[in-house]
């Protein structure tokens, strides 16, 4: 369960203050599948980073599974990231000098999983994403879709309760994208809370709920199945240009 109460994230840009998040109020239940949409610079990624404990809110309260995490120190945040959250990025962020299975092992290294246990568990995770025959390939030897599947295996290796995906299909062709989305959908069906930042209506439509952000605020909420067009998705952002300039 993710509870955000009046969450602000403010950057100092010279003398000015830039509000990437300006009072976000939202509750996401365990096991939900939520898509976050909005124009560039609307605060989608910042919201995801705050939820993922990579970033801390400047003000407001963020309770993750009933625990206030907004004020935690670095060590505690690292523990939360390790134990409760998996992250999938638009660019896979695999470590190039490690092969696929070693990349999947990485989180276990920091979590203190016994060495003898790591390799079998990582192999299992690769089987789940159907990449067992690519285990010893370097990221550069894998296709984009394969890389993203390795990244998903890595993100879920410690069985987090929340999986965050920032434009997970942004760099993929449709077929690879579908595979990745099916994989994420399957994980969500298995009980994991799934948050996907996207600007692809097709991706967002798979979600139970869609949050539309604009200027750091949630301006629109709807069910994924009700999302019909990009204009609908972007809501007020798709208004006439004259409106935008005003």
């Amino acid at each position: 369960m993710i509870e955000l109460v009046d969450v602000w994230r403010t950057y100092d840009v010279g003398a000015e203050k830039l509000h990437a998040l300006a009072g976000v109020q939202e509750t996401i239940d365990t096991g939900e599948h939520v898509a976050i949409m909005g124009p560039s610079g609307s605060g989608k990624s910042t919201l995801l980073n705050v939820i993922g404990c990579l970033d801390r809110p400047t003000a407001g309260s963020y309770r993750l599974n009933g625990r206030e995490v907004a004020g935690l120190g670095e060590d505690e945040l690292a523990r939360v990231r390790r134990e409760e959250i998996g992250y999938v990025f638009q660019s896979h962020h695999l470590v190039e000098r490690l092969d696929a299975v070693a990349n999947v092992e990485l989180p276990m290294t920091f979590a203190g999983v016994a060495r003898s246990e790591r390799r079998p568990r990582a192999m299992e995770a690769l089987i789940e994403v159907r990449l067992q025959d690519r285990a010893s390939h370097r990221p550069s030897e894998l296709s984009g879709g394969q890389r993203q599947r390795v990244a998903i295996a890595r993100a879920t290796i410690l069985r987090p309760r929340v999986l965050l995906a920032d434009e997970p299909t942004g760099n993929l062709d449709r077929t690879s994208g579908e595979q990745v989305l099916d994989l994420l959908g399957g994980l969500n069906a298995g009980g994991i809370t799934l948050l996907v930042v996207t600007h692809d209506v097709e991706v967002a439509r798979r979600a139970q709920r869609v949050l539309i952000l604009e200027d750091g605020r949630i301006v629109h909420r709807c069910a994924g199945r009700d999302l019909t067009s990009l204009a609908d998705a972007l809501g007020s952002a798709a208004r006439a240009p004259a409106d935008l300039s005003g």
Partner: peptide
């Protein structure tokens, strides 16, 4: 890579 290590939960000390 360091960002990634942090994202997967590496503590500062690690």
């Amino acid at each position: 890579e360091i960002g990634l290590l942090k994202a997967v939960g590496a503590a500062p000390r690690q």
